Measured scan of single mutants.
Amino acid sequence: QVATSTVRILGMTCQSCVKSIEDRISNLKGIISMKVSLEQGSATVKYVPSVVCLQQVCHQIGDMGFEASIAE
């Protein structure tokens, strides 16, 4: 089973930030795809909930120095 959710990301300033986040999160087990939008300050994450949760994704992004939260 696959889920798609949006994560809000604060602190991104350039495409390099976007690429860094996409590269790191895409390597997590259970992540199918991730598309980060600098303009919208968010990311669309396609993932397998039984393998990885959005809290883990937000935590990983937080470790990179950005502020991440699950969009309502």
Rank of each mutant, 00 (worst) to 15 (best):
V51S: 04
G30Q: 04
I32M: 06
S5E: 08
Q56P: 01
L54P: 06
L54T: 01
Q40W: 12
Q40L: 13
V7H: 00
E67G: 07
S5G: 15
V7T: 01
G11E: 04
S69V: 11
G30Y: 05
M12N: 02
V7L: 15
T13L: 11
A3T: 13
A68G: 04
Y47K: 00
G30E: 02
V57F: 02
Q15K: 10
A71T: 11
L10V: 13
S20M: 15
E67N: 11
L54H: 02
S42P: 03
F66I: 03
S42D: 09
V51D: 07
Q40D: 12
R8W: 14
S37G: 03
E67Y: 12
A43N: 01
N27M: 14
S50W: 07
S20H: 09
S16N: 12
L10F: 12
I61H: 04
M12R: 01
E67A: 10
Q1D: 15
I70E: 07
Q56A: 12
N27S: 13
V2H: 10
I32Y: 03
L54M: 11
Q15H: 14
V52K: 00
L38K: 01
G41E: 15
G65S: 03
T6H: 11
K19D: 13
I70A: 08
D23P: 00
G65F: 06
R24I: 08
M12W: 05
V7C: 10
H59A: 13
V57D: 02
P49N: 04
V36K: 00
I9Y: 00
E67M: 10
G65T: 02
V51A: 06
C17F: 05
P49L: 06
G41R: 15
V18H: 02
S16F: 08
V57K: 02
T6I: 13
A3C: 15
L54K: 01
I70L: 11
S16E: 14
Q60I: 15
A3S: 13
G11V: 06
C17E: 14
S37R: 08
M34I: 15
I31W: 02
E72G: 10
F66P: 01
V57S: 01
G62H: 13
I70H: 06
Q56R: 09
V57Y: 03
L10D: 09
I25R: 01
L10G: 11
V36R: 00
M34G: 00
L54V: 07
S5H: 12
G30L: 08
R24W: 07
E67T: 11
D63A: 14
E39C: 08
Y47Q: 01
S50Y: 06
L10Q: 11
V48K: 08
K29Y: 14
Q60E: 15
L28Q: 05
S26G: 13
A71P: 13
N27A: 12
L10C: 08
Q40P: 04
K19V: 10
S5Y: 05
C14F: 02
Q55T: 09
Q60S: 11
A68E: 02
Q40F: 13
A68F: 06
E22S: 05
I21M: 02
K29D: 14
M12Y: 02
V51P: 00
G62K: 15
A71N: 11
I61C: 05
I32V: 10
L38I: 06
I21L: 06
I70M: 08
S69R: 11
P49A: 07
I70K: 03
V57H: 03
I70Y: 15
A71F: 10
A71K: 08
S69A: 08
G41K: 12
R24N: 08
I70G: 04
S20N: 11
F66H: 01
V2A: 06
T44H: 08
M12A: 03
Q40E: 11
G41H: 13
K35W: 07
E39N: 08
A43W: 03
S42W: 08
S69H: 13
C53P: 08
S33T: 06
S26F: 05
L28G: 02
F66Q: 03
S16R: 13
Q1N: 07
S20Y: 07
L28V: 08
A68K: 03
H59P: 02
T13C: 07
P49G: 03
Q40T: 12
V45H: 03
A3Q: 10
L38G: 00
Y47G: 02
M34T: 05
C17S: 05
S33K: 08
C58V: 15
Q1F: 05
D23T: 11
Q55W: 12
M64Q: 01
G65Q: 04
I31Q: 00
S42G: 05
